[in-house]
Amino acid sequence: MKTLESGTLTGRDLHLSFGSNHVLRGIDLHVERGTTASVIGPSGSGKSTLLRVLNRLIEPDKGDILLDGRSVLKDNPDELRRRIGMVFQQFNLFPHKTVVDNVSLALRKLRKMPADEAREKALAQLDLVGLKHKADVRPGNLSGGQQQRVAIARALAMDPEVMFFDEATSALDPELVKGVLALMADLAAAGMTMVVVTHEMGFSRNVSDTVTFMDGGVVVESGPPAALFDNPQTPRLKSFLSDVL
């Protein structure tokens, strides 16, 4: 993977409501290029929504999003999303396309890469996640862990500046979680800028550079993992940690 010159991501005072439901109530998040930020918190705290707002799958009602210090709210959202890879809890691979076509689709259609070149690149990407030998089968024939690794390869194929992981291991059988987490840790170590929404406290503590604890649509606490996990300041984080650890 090539190291990128860009990828510093900042969300400023992000607000979002669905009707009377105020999901995000002024979120600030800063992810320095080459670092991994994990976002933890109880279900319904707005973590997954925050990711979707940061890549504008959902437009915020208020606030700003900056990539390398420049606001991206006026940009074409499709072009913004080409710069940010996203991995979902339910993998969301395209079941009607083979594994290699899943990975090469965006290269061919968005980057206008010739088919053979796109396939080469997709195969190389699949090799990185250890699934080159599955290139020509359909995703339905893979295990959950394999599907998630293909989804990661699909996102990486676009050479994103930032990677989002939305509870990427929550839908996996326990024995398959490790492989996906190891791959994510490798990516972090290789210098990818990542925002990881996760319930895996071990990953959050050992791999991420900063941890953000969200509850009720606000950031309750954030800082380096050691500080949050060993010395939580707020009662809400204390009770959350005692519930999950």
């Binding site: 799958l57 979902f88 691979l93 395209f94 689709l105 996102a155």
Partner: peptide, 13 residues
């Protein structure tokens, strides 16, 4: 599934 549209949009389509 809604996730299919979402995944495709997330890729930049």
């Amino acid at each position: 599934e809604k996730g299919q549209l979402e995944a495709s949009r997330a890729l930049g389509f």
